[in-house]
Design a protein around this nucleic acid. Sequence first.
DNA 1: TTGTAACCGAGACGGTACGTCTCGTCTTGCA
DNA 2: TGCAAGACGAGACGTACCGTCTCGGTTACAA
Lengths: 190, 190, 190, 190
Amino acid sequence: MTEKRASIGARRNPDTETAVLDAAAEVLAEKGISGLSMEAVAKRARAGKATLYRWWPTRGALLLAVYRRMKFDDHYPDTGALESDIAGVLALVLDHWRGGTAQVFRSIIAAAQAEPDVNAALTEFRLERRDALVRVIHRAEARGELAPGLAPEALADAVIAMLWLKLLSDQTDADPAELARVLTHGWTQG
Amino acid sequence: MTEKRASIGARRNPDTETAVLDAAAEVLAEKGISGLSMEAVAKRARAGKATLYRWWPTRGALLLAVYRRMKFDDHYPDTGALESDIAGVLALVLDHWRGGTAQVFRSIIAAAQAEPDVNAALTEFRLERRDALVRVIHRAEARGELAPGLAPEALADAVIAMLWLKLLSDQTDADPAELARVLTHGWTQG
Amino acid sequence: MTEKRASIGARRNPDTETAVLDAAAEVLAEKGISGLSMEAVAKRARAGKATLYRWWPTRGALLLAVYRRMKFDDHYPDTGALESDIAGVLALVLDHWRGGTAQVFRSIIAAAQAEPDVNAALTEFRLERRDALVRVIHRAEARGELAPGLAPEALADAVIAMLWLKLLSDQTDADPAELARVLTHGWTQG
Amino acid sequence: MTEKRASIGARRNPDTETAVLDAAAEVLAEKGISGLSMEAVAKRARAGKATLYRWWPTRGALLLAVYRRMKFDDHYPDTGALESDIAGVLALVLDHWRGGTAQVFRSIIAAAQAEPDVNAALTEFRLERRDALVRVIHRAEARGELAPGLAPEALADAVIAMLWLKLLSDQTDADPAELARVLTHGWTQG
DNA sequence: TTGTAACCGAGACGGTACGTCTCGTCTTGCA
DNA sequence: TGCAAGACGAGACGTACCGTCTCGGTTACAA
């Protein structure tokens, strides 16, 4: 996106948005999160800084926009059994991260610890993902597979927690099947 | 620590270390992680910036030093049953965080995503905590309580993952007993 | 110039330039050359350090800009005789220096010994002044007053040399008439 | 001077002095005046900073000590005529500077413009050199060669002024004979 | 048809913080 | 006591970004 862009009137220019998100993704890939300054993105995108701030007021907003473009297929497979369903979800997400989005999402979690608006956006995103997981668990419940007295939301949280831990500690190459077993099996016997 | 400090020869001055860590903790409490600049800490501690950088080369190193001083009682209670042991661990850590260290540890995890040295230190810390958890699980194993085929390290990871998720998503007020139940119970029946 | 200044678009703000040069002159007058740090000038001018460095990359450049603003009347009087013309020039410059610019010009000469760009600017300035002197000498030549075999440039250098020596050795109160006599008269008789 | 030096008791160690002045001269030659920090000299000389400050309290004092070690033969030749005597003096000094001491002396003059103690030392040195020149002029006076009404000190100043100008403006390769002619000849005829 | 409103790239502005450097002072432990 | 060593408080250095602004130009829509 090197050709000159200008205003297309009193409304947002989609070319500019594309150029900015492309530039942000490139900078992120090349220099990592600490190199992702608004300044650098504006320069790389040949965009004015004011334009950036108009549409993405914080670095976190920019990060989230980049991550959202990297949308993965959130159609979680139905294998007919909870453990393998969970394993499928874990595999899907870990694959997605290993495909190159890990750095971006790690950076978002990091940014959320300091910037409230990023935190809010991340919470929204997390709950949305949790709902998708809860739907998987409800399928198991409908099959009469689920043990009584366990909140599906809490179980979904356990899955998400494990994913985040693996992401944040550079272990996106973990084995989904084993993780699923640890999460869904009872730890104790009898 | 307002009185003037000076060199005590060609070696580290413990008074300075105390003053710096005190200052860092105060700044963190007052202005949060984004207000914790090396500049501000140096000014508050009445220390030279070079002195800071000599002993704590990055902000993450400083954060870790502050966190280490907030050492909690890591004597995990032995209740005679795994689930209540885990609940005890969760309660201990969540209490510790609610007591004021949550902000610090969240910041460390965030910093670790960008700074390799902080990442390394955090990994070391995490494995150390995991070992303590593994010892709890080994107690259950010795009692014949543990189901076969589950790696204690993986189980410990699940506990740590849940704790981190609660920390990172502002839920340090979660109920340890319920979390322990979700983690240790089997999700499925039969 | 205490009221707030801001950008006037993507081009230089003359108010800022004025404020900076005023501040530099004030700092110089109050604390001398060793107190003239970029930091101090920026603070006094309520200007950003980056703005200073953008337009005056070195301390010497700033000094030269200050000196150029203190432009003296370079209309050298025509008395009809070389010696009194030279005495007039000497008096003019020494007066100018005693009027408060001595410190600035001394600092420029000092800075030029370490910073090449200041050296270049000072050389340019020196040659420009020498040309003005050469014109005075040419007037004498036209009157048939000048002895043969003497390069006007070399004679002008002798005048400038004497001025610089007096400046650099705190003797700006020297007697222009006597200096002119020493310079223009033959030392030997017969 | 790389071997370890130690105290020789409660008095100054000449080895240390040599090592320090050697180091200062080397640093000056390699990095110029702006690189000549007390820090750098101490490190290069393997001397303690306290030792430096004990014997050479300012950078100027160190510079002067270095310059004094580069003592030139100040036996000004007696040719029997003032102009050629002056030419000899000019040649001697310019040669000395071209031999490698120019940088040092330029730096001293520069330092003297900001540091009063260096200024005092330089003045002392300058007057000492002027006295030597005055003696040359007195020889001419004794021969009845000198025109009446001219102060030998003022004439000597003119010579020194010309030398300093050439030094400060990178013209140490000037022709001593021509400079002497310009200085000693009358500018006007008749 | 003509404002005019909001967009665009550009980049200067006042600032803050960075990490490095040097200053001059100090305390130690060895010789 | 002198010395090498080097930590200390202090603060200037020059750089990088921050978020805001003004500019001059462009385009679409309303009057």
